[in-house]
Structures are given as structure tokens and as C-alpha cells.
Design a protein around this nucleic acid. Structure first.
Length: 580
RNA sequence: GCGCCUGUAGCUCAGCUGGAUAGAGUGUUGCCCUCCGAAGGCAAAGGUCGUGAGUUCGAAUCUCGCCAGGCGCGCCA
């Protein structure tokens, strides 16, 4: 039960008592905190319907609400807003009861769903670049929020590990190490064989191969042959490919571990290689897929271009593998929702895939397919971001930058003095990554994304470190001053306490909004406000030297704040250090 | 040409299922460590919400036109 739900119930009852049982009460947190805690705007539309004076209705409702001791004041202001202020005593009683529970007062309003989330999307043969941060972060945070809300979630990385790029990679590997056994015609297995290439090679061969193929037709021809042979299952190529994939994947998994991004599945395009073939045949047999200009396509409504399953050269396109992946996901997990977190430029592709999936029955009508786009990563000049070397910065380099900045902050600060070297390393990692993650999660923009290294790794202002700092401070207070008796009601003696309590009680509303709109930045913003309100409380309300009653109340409030803040941090995938 | 996204403080962004006086951070200018953690707190300043109309008791929010920017429009993923 949330505070908002309690107030809403009271207002609904008041409206009913006044003779308006079906009125929309429009109860929300107040826009004007100096006037009230909550407001109801229900009298305004109701007055319009009934052709009466909104203030008259509002006054009628307010008079009923005034009889409830729960409210300190109830007033009618402006054109007909009902303003309610909760009594301090009730608020103090309610806060521990609601917050000191399993989900901090949150109750899921919708039945449990099975949700598949498609994020991260690493491409084999390429390093993770900065754009993968967005997909991974947002996807993982939404997964955490949905899990918290009670859904069964499955995060899938959806690797780009198949098709032409792999043929190109194999071509380049052969150019460099033609002696590898994988290319021999009498190849059996590679037991005991140590491949000559390293992770550094793995991340550079694809871009090189891709460039070569553009200029050299023979090279491209070889890539096409390898692509076809790999897809047909030629053992040598397949084993080499597997080695290559595993090496890239180990790197990706390490980065995801550092970022605290969790994935349940590492399916890729290769996972559905066989089923894609049968699916294409099936779609053709049923007449959904037709030949058009030499390509096998599924036609779309109106002016939308067709989804190409197989191009005129006979190669399988990613619309086909995405459909096959959906089919596989439906069969194995029966999801109610599938969410895709990718670059906004893929919008057309997904609308084609979604429409095709529904039309062909691969995905039933009642399953919702959602495209969750984010903008392209641009530099401060709003043009596609380039490093000095001319590329998008790698994810690893950005993470290292962030960790480095956090380390400098520790070395410069007072608190850093009595930390061991190992502690400093651990803390800068936790804090630096949090800075990076929070900077990414705090805005919800589908437009182009301005990458500003300074801002991403900053540790001051509205940043990850600010939040961690507040949380670490809560922990420190509880450790140094003592534990609270949580059974007692809070006593409110200062406006800062009141503000903080109301903020904490708004947690369920924030979670619900974040869940409904799949928007982690709502949690990020809420957590920032919790930290801010706590900092004000900390500043204005001494704990240690307060009277016993006040001390206990303030310690309890600190503990409740810690509970909410750590829950939010967890929803965003932010790790919390013990000290910093 | 068609379609999608975006335009809010100097900069980066919240607010957009319509509600009262549009909010943060940053930058600028000040103030606060004898006090539980100053990666902190407080204050000042900063706005024709791109623009013009419409819808209505009420529009940053909804509708339409226009202007500006980004992206996508059959055989890459």
C-alpha cells in the first residue's frame, strides 16, 4: 500500500459521499509543497460535466475530508484545487509501517508477465564501443525494474555473430595465418591446438577485412564463400569461428561484469541458423514470403518497404534471423512482452519485423513487441562522435577514464588518507562506473545523444558519486551513532524531516511510472531527489546530540532512507561502496 | 519526395496520458567545516517553453501549419 493509494481512497470516498461515486479524483503529489502534500483536481472536470461551480464542489469535498484527523489541513484554492496536508503524527506513524516492508510499500498493479529484453548486442569481431553502454545500461535497468515489479524477465544479449561479417573475419584470419589447421581440406579437429591470434587481433580484424573487401573483389568473393560454407556447417571454419567468438565473448562478459549488467542468455544470430532456413521455407510455402526483384520478401502495408528475408544473391538477411529468433523465443519462453533496446536508426527494420511476426502468426496478437530506441552518440558539436584516431570511443576506454577520474578524486580528498591501496582501487572502480552509468541513465532521450567525456565521468552535482556519497554517509551515521528502534513512530520537528519522509513515501509512485514507461531515468531522478532531501536533513537535523526521542526518530529516518536509496541503486544496477 | 525523432536557462537535460508561480545539474557571483563524511549545504542571477494559429474554464503538454536540426527510406547489421 502506498501513501498515494491511501489518500486516493480517502478522496474517492469523499467524492462518493458527496454524491459523485464515479468522479475521477485526480489525486497526485502537490505541485505546491508549501500549500499541501497532496492535491485533488477532481472537482474541475466534474464541475464541467455537471455545469456547476468547481469551487462549490471542491468545498463540499473538502468539508468531508476535514472531518478526517488524518489531515492537518484541507483547503480549496485557485479555481477548485483541493489541497491536503497530512498531520505530522500520522505521517510519522505511517512511514516506518509502509517503507520497512518487503518492497518498500510498492505493490504491483498488473499480473505477472514473462518478458524478454534484448540488449547489449555485441558484434563478434568488433570491440564494444560507447553506444553499447546505452543499450546495456538501459536494458539491464528496465530488466531490474520489471523484475522488482514481479515480472519474470529474461535478458538476451543477441550477438551479431553470423553472416557476411563472419565470412570477412575468416578471410582476414586466413590472410594472416594461412597455416592454421582449420583451412586444411583434411581437417578433423583442433584438439591441443593453440590459435595464434590474441584478443587485440580479434577486435581489429573485422574493420580491416571490411575495408579490404570494399576495394578488392577477390577478397570479397572469398568472404562470400566462407560465409556460405560456415552457414552450411563446414567443420574447420565452424571450429575457428567458435574460437573467435569465445574470445570476443570473454571480453564482452568481462565488461558487462564491470558494468554490473546481467544477461541471462547469450543467444546470437548463429543460434537460429537452422531454424531460419526452415522458417523461410515455411513462410514461402504458406505464401507469406514472395519473390520480388530477385529477393524473397514479406510485403508490408502501405508505402513501407518489404522485409527482405533472402537477398537476390541468396544470402539470409537479418530480418529473417530476427523473425527466427522471435519464433525461438516464443517457443521456449512464451513471453508476453519482448523489448528491444537498440539505436533509433533501426526503427524501420523493427516495425517491419514486428508487422511480419504478427501477420505470419510467429507472434500472437496479444504479445506486445516494443522497440525502445535511443539516439545516436554524437560529440559536443552534435556530429557523430570521433576520437582523435577517428573512431567512436571504445567502451573500455570510457570506463577506464571514469575510474581514473574517481581515483584522482580519492587521492585529492580528505577521506582518502586512511584507505589502503586495495580499497582505493576498489572504490574508484565502483564510483567511476557508477558515474558513467548514472550519467547515461539519468536522461531518457531518443534524440541524438551528446557524448561529453567531462560530463560522463564527473563526480560533482547530479552524478552517480553524489548518490553514492549520500548512501555511504547514511551507512556511516548508522554505524557511528547507532541503530534505531524501528517500531516507534517518527517524530517530526523540522521541515527537512517532513520533506524527506514524503519523498520516501513516493517510492511506489516512481517505480510504477518507471515500470509503465520503461524509463529508468524516473528512478534515477527519484534517487537523486532522495539523496538531496537526505543531505538537507543531514545538514539541518543533528542526530548525535539530539534528545533520545529525536535521535531514535532521526536514526530510523536515516535507516528508511538507506533502505529506499539502496533499493533504487539496485534498480539502476549501481554498486555501493562501504566507504568512499 | 515520404516517414520517424527532436527544438524548454549560456551549456546538458527533467517536466509532455492538459492543471496553480516551468524545474535540476553545470557555468557565473557570494556565503557555510569547533558540529554524525565539504565528492556536501545555502543564496543570487539566468526563460517570447522554436514559431503562428486552433481546441477549452485552463496548453511547455493535445491538433494543424510553418521554421530549424537529426535519422531512416529493398538486397549491410
Amino acid at each position: 500500500m502506498s501513501l498515494l493509494a491511501i489518500i486516493s481512497d480517502k478522496v474517492v470516498q469523499a467524492f462518493a459521499k458527496a454524491g459523485y461515486p464515479d468522479a475521477e479524483c485526480l489525486v497526485r503529489a502537490s505541485d505546491r509543497p508549501e500549500l499541501s502534500d497532496f492535491q485533488s483536481n477532481g472537482a474541475l472536470p466534474l464541475a464541467k460535466q455537471t455545469h456547476t461551480n468547481p469551487r462549490e464542489i471542491a468545498t463540499q469535498i473538502a468539508d468531508i475530508l476535514k472531518q478526517d484527523d488524518f489531515f492537518a489541513t484541507v483547503s480549496v484554492d485557485g479555481p477548485g484545487f483541493i489541497n491536503m496536508k497530512i498531520s505530522d503524527v500520522e505521517l510519522g506513524k505511517l512511514a516506518p509501517q509502509l517503507i520497512n516492508t518487503d518492497k518498500c510499500g510498492y505493490e504491483c498493479s498488473t499480473p505477472q508477465k514473462t518478458v524478454i529484453l534484448d540488449y547489449c548486442g555485441p558484434n563478434i569481431g568488433k570491440v564494444l564501443h560507447f553506444g553499447h553502454l546505452r543499450s546495456s545500461n538501459i536494458g539491464d535497468a528496465v530488466r531490474r525494474i520489471m523484475t522488482f515489479a514481479g515480472d519474470k524477465t529474461i535478458g538476451d544479449a543477441h550477438l551479431g555473430d553470423w553472416g557476411r561479417p563472419m565470412g570477412l573475419v575468416l578471410t582476414e584470419l586466413k590472410e594472416r595465418w594461412p597455416e592454421m589447421p582449420y583451412f586444411k581440406s583434411d581437417y578433423k579437429n583442433d584438439k591441443g591446438y593453440q590459435v595464434p591470434f590474441t584478443l587485440a587481433d580479434v577486435t581489429e580484424v573485422y574493420p580491416i577485412a571490411s575495408a579490404k573487401a570494399k576495394e578488392n573483389p577477390e577478397y570479397m568473393e572469398q568472404a562470400k564463400i566462407f560465409t556460405r560454407e560456415l552457414q552450411a556447417g563446414k567443420k574447420g571454419l565452424h571450429d575457428l569461428w567458435k574460437k573467435f567468438v569465445d574470445m570476443t565473448l570473454a571480453d564482452t562478459k568481462e565488461l558487462m561484469q564491470i558494468l554490473n549488467v546481467h544477461l541471462d542468455l547469450w543467444w546470437g544470430e548463429s543460434t537460429v541458423n537452422d531454424t531460419t532456413t526452415t522458417l523461410i521455407q515455411d513462410l514461402q510455402d504458406k505464401g507469406f514470403a514472395v519473390m520480388d526483384d530477385g529477393a524473397l520478401v514479406i510485403k508490408q502495408e502501405g508505402d513501407t518497404p518489404p522485409a527482405i528475408l533472402v537477398n537476390s544473391a541468396g544470402a539470409t538477411m537479418y530480418a529473417a534471423s530476427d523473425l527466427a529468433t522471435l519464433q525461438e523465443r516464443m517457443q521456449q519462453f512464451h513471453p508476453d512482452v519482448v523489448l528491444y533496446f537498440t539505436d533509433a536508426r533501426q526503427g524501420l527494420h523493427f516495425s517491419q519485423v514486428f508487422a511480419s511476426a504478427k501477420k505470419t502468426g510467429i507472434v500472437p496478437e496479444n504479445v506486445s513487441l516494443e522497440f525502445q530506441p535511443f539516439g545516436t552518440v554524437n560529440g559536443p558539436d552534435n556530429k557523430p562522435y570521433k576520437t582523435r584516431e577517428g573512431g567512436v570511443p571504445t567502451l573500455r576506454s570510457v570506463i577506464e577514464m571514469a575510474i581514473d577520474t574517481a581515483r584522482k578524486k580519492i587521492d585529492a580528498g580528505e577521506m582518502g588518507k586512511d584507505l589502503s591501496e586495495q580499497e582505493k582501487i576498489d572504490i574508484s572502480k565502483t564510483v567511476g562506473v557508477a558515474a558513467l552509468k548514472f550519467a547515461d541513465l539519468m536522461n531518457d532521450k531518443t534524440k541524438n545523444y551528446i557524448f561529453d567525456a567531462e560530463r560522463m565521468i564527473s563526480t560533482e552535482g547530479k552524478t552517480g558519486p553524489y548518490l553514492l556519497y549520500a548512501i555511504v554517509r547514511m551507512k556511516a551515521i548508522l554505524e557511528k551513532v547507532g541503530k534505531a528502534n524501528m517500531d516507534k513512530a517518527l517524530v517530526i520537528t523540522d521541515p527537512a524531516e517532513r520533506k524527506l519522509i514524503l519523498r520516501l513515501l513516493a517510492f511506489p509512485t516512481a517505480v510504477q511510472a518507471a515500470y509503465d514507461t520503461r524509463a529508468p531515468h524516473i528512478i534515477a531522478d527519484y534517487l537523486y531527489n532522495v539523496a538531496g532531501d537526505f543531505n538537507l536533513f543531514y545538514h539541518d537535523c543533528p542526530i548525535k546530540m539530539a534528545s533520545a526521542t529525536e535521535r531514535n526518530s532521526r536514526l530510523a529516518l536515516t535507516e528508511l532512507s538507506l533502505r529506499i536509496a539502496t533499493t533504487c541503486a539496485d534498480l539502476l544496477g549501481l554498486r555501493i561502496p562501504d566507504k568512499m
